[in-house]
Design a protein around this nucleic acid. Structure first.
Length: 421
DNA sequence: TCTGGGGTCCTAGGACCC
DNA sequence: TCTGGGGTCCTAGGACCC
């Protein structure tokens, strides 16, 4: 009988900030989304103040000031690096690991005897804390859904560990576990289930799988089986090839000029090229979108357009050209645009690309230019070298930005931002 | 004034074909 | 007065995740 553990960082982004500033230890801490828009990570102290997940910053600014909340812009370079460190700790504890998200990993624990799993999990937690500084919780169960459930329930325990391998213990926990906290049950499903009087995981477990399928598609049916200890979702120790890739951003200030939009989208196309090259993938079409703020009273506009590229590519300059054509076609003045982005799907490895009959592109030349750019940006930091199209204005300054007013230093990935005593 | 970004999977329905 | 049956493929939209 297999068993899986789910380990995750407590208030992960906030904990990363705390590692590098111990004075934050008992203080409420929150980390903001891109553009400093809303709270996406909160410590327990911050949650106690009533700050919700996704709470817009402008609504809690006073609350934060009054309660001495430490507020950070998101610092993905730091969080990503801390995540890598945590996963290297896990390597020593299990032969099979699935990195599920930036702060969560599933570990196969079948090799640990049932009676020793709680001790194993405590050791895993303590080692992770000691080697990375990040506090975690561990949940154990026979399926991913139950491991997730155990992990969630473990958050409330001082030990930070919960093993739900035993069926009696499991039934007891599930009897009062709200379905909204079950992995795979979102708002819509929660509402449908509430009409049937189903509120707790124990009731969901006993639901007829066929009815679950009618109500919530095959995904819901799998959830029922998983809650019964029947695995339907396997451990993916090798990350599957990604299918799509996107770069989208809200603007720090509303965009009203076409030149700003052109620069912004050119920058996104550049970044898209970097991401595709890093994953060894290419695309033969890009979709560009732009829209006004749905929260504002302004006249609304939301448009998108897909542009074909003759041959699949990951060359930034080619992507910029395609994106620019879309902006040209989509742009209409008189609106206050709040966000734009570039999206691709159907990614292919460049080797598999379909050669175009005409317009054959010079891939070798493009590859040399981008390789040189990537190397410079790797060595001296992102955006050291950028395509001219991403800059504008008389001094070639970027005239649009995303806000990151409160970002901590990239302590672990930039020499010039190392912590000092 | 100020409300994130980036993914995956599933299904229904239309287009099209024989 | 009359209008089949059954496939496949694609897309848009919904739901969910972190």
């Amino acid at each position: 009988m297999t068993a899986l553990a789910l380990i995750d960082g407590n208030s992960f982004y906030c904990s990363c900030e705390r590692v590098f500033d111990p004075k934050l230890e008992r203080r409420p801490v929150i980390v903001l989304s891109n553009n400093d828009g809303c709270a996406v990570a909160r410590t327990s102290e911050a949650k106690a103040l009533g700050i919700k997940m996704g709470h817009p910053m402008f609504q809690i600014r006073d609350l934060c000031r009054q309660n001495n909340v430490a507020v950070f812009s998101s610092n993905y370079a730091l969080y990503g690096d801390m995540s890598r460190r945590m996963n290297s700790v896990y390597q020593g504890f299990s032969p099979d690991i699935e990195i599920y998200s930036i702060d969560e990993s599933f570990l196969d624990v079948t090799h640990v005897r049932p009676g020793e799993r709680t001790a194993w999990a405590s050791d895993l937690r303590a080692t992770t804390r000691q080697w990375t500084g990040i506090p975690t919780c561990v949940g154990i169960g026979p399926t991913k859904t139950l491991a997730k459930l155990a992990n969630k329930a473990a958050k409330a325990l001082p030990a930070g560990v919960l093993d739900l391998t035993d069926e009696c213990v499991r039934a007891e926990v599930m009897a009062k576990f709200p379905i909204g906290d079950v992995w795979g049950i979102g708002r819509a499903s929660q509402e449908k289930l509430a009409h049937l009087g189903i509120e707790f995981a124990g009731q969901l477990r006993d639901m007829d799988p066929k009815l679950a399928r009618q109500l919530m598609t095959v995904v819901g049916e799998k959830t029922i089986h998983e809650l019964n200890g029947i695995p339907c979702v396997g451990l993916e120790t090798v990350a599957p090839q990604r299918k799509g890739c996107a770069v989208t951003r809200s603007f720090g200030e509303r965009v009203i000029h076409k030149s700003q939009m052109e620069q912004a989208v050119a920058g996104y196309a550049t970044r898209l090229g970097e991401k595709l090259r890093r994953h060894g993938l290419a695309t033969d079409h890009v979709t560009v979108f732009m829209h006004t703020s749905p929260f504002a009273d302004d006249p609304q506009r939301s448009v998108s357009m897909t542009v074909d590229i003759p041959e699949a590519t990951n060359d930034s300059l080619t992507l910029i050209k395609a994106a620019r054509r879309a902006v040209d076609a989509l742009w209409k003045p008189g609106f206050r645009y709040s966000k734009a982005g570039i999206i691709t799907q159907d990614l292919v490895p460049p080797a598999e690309r379909q050669r175009a009959l005409f317009d054959a592109m010079d891939h070798d030349k493009a590859a040399k230019v981008t390789a040189a750019m990537d190397e410079a940006n790797r060595r001296w930091g992102r955006a050291t070298v950028v395509p001219a199209a991403t800059m504008g204005g008389p001094r070639k300054q970027q005239t649009f930005t995303t806000k990151f007013d409160m970002r901590s230093p990239r302590f672990t990935t930039r020499w010039d931002e190392l912590p000092r005593c």
